[in-house]
Design a protein around this nucleic acid. Structure first.
Lengths: 153, 153
DNA sequence: TCACATTTAATTGTTCGCAATTGAATACGC
DNA sequence: GCGTATTCAATTGCGAACAATTAAATGTGA
């Protein structure tokens, strides 16, 4: 029985890869966010850091890293750029001089108000109900956590 | 009524962002793939390019880009690294000299056999049934395509 | 035919993302 | 208290990702 593609090749076909679905969806999100975040003067990873800090600031770099699954190699230069943009300040803790504490400036706090417009634009772009998105989010988070468990997070 | 966090802030909370779920899941996949792909001498984006080429090679750079949603700024240096690794060759088309055709070398074709072990390791790491993964994949792809429709893909 | 637009890769510059290493501060074990 | 281990951020180097530009080849319309 002749086939264009062998059934044995199915596991290697691009369109069968959930990892590619996730990878390409992440890039698609990035492209939708870009024009919205340009107005805030932020990149997407910088926006994530600001989301963390808007919940609670005066936290060490490590805490931000654990929240976002990023290390200091990524965060140190990113935080320096946000400091150069006057959105936050980086100061060594006096209690424990290994820690660098990240605190928002008044401008950093103020940017939160401008950011409130972003999630609703994303919701519109996703063309999807909130409940569907919440369900998908929970499933993806569960998958992520199982993957992270393997590599030891 | 006092609250730790105002309900008005819910749309900006990190854990409510589906984009972050997708973003962090993509990184989690990357970390699981890394040790598997190290054995093949590939990075994850290089693996995706190889998946495309194992389905069909002798294709222009543009076709690979459309398949993976990547542009020449990403692909040109990546393909040069794969060429340096003797997995493929880049040759200008004689029909249309604007095109650079990508063809696998014998080593490039041969690597497919070693790659067959990868998907099953990923499946195990995801700790999830195939049918659940397929459902999730289809949902994520549908979301991705709606997002891409907004930015004009 | 000839000017002009379009297509295609390559290039440049900026920002992530991560592995590996370094150096300083702190915690621990005896 | 002292030597060692651990923690934390910074640094270095490499590989993506993408915007913007460039240059060459091809297509199109008057």
């Amino acid at each position: 029985m002749a086939r264009k593609q062998s059934a044995a090749d199915a596991p290697l076909r691009l369109d069968n890869q959930i990892c590619f679905a996730v990878y390409s969806a992440a890039h698609a999100f990035n492209r939708v966010y870009k024009p919205l975040l340009d107005r805030l003067g932020l990149t997407y990873p910088q926006y994530l850091v600001m989301l963390v800090l808007w919940e609670r600031d005066d936290v060490p770099v490590k805490d931000i890293g654990e929240r976002l699954f990023l290390d200091s190699g990524t965060l140190t230069p990113l935080l320096k750029r946000l400091e150069a943009a006057h959105l936050l300040r980086r100061t060594r803790s006096s209690d424990d001089e290994r820690l660098v504490l990240i605190a928002l400036t008044p401008q950093g706090h103020a940017l939160k108000e401008k950011a409130r417009a972003v999630p609703q634009s994303i919701l519109a772009a996703s063309d999807c109900s909130v409940s569907e998105l919440v369900t998908m989010k929970d499933e993806i988070v569960a998958l992520r956590d199982r993957l992270n468990a393997v590599t030891g997070e």
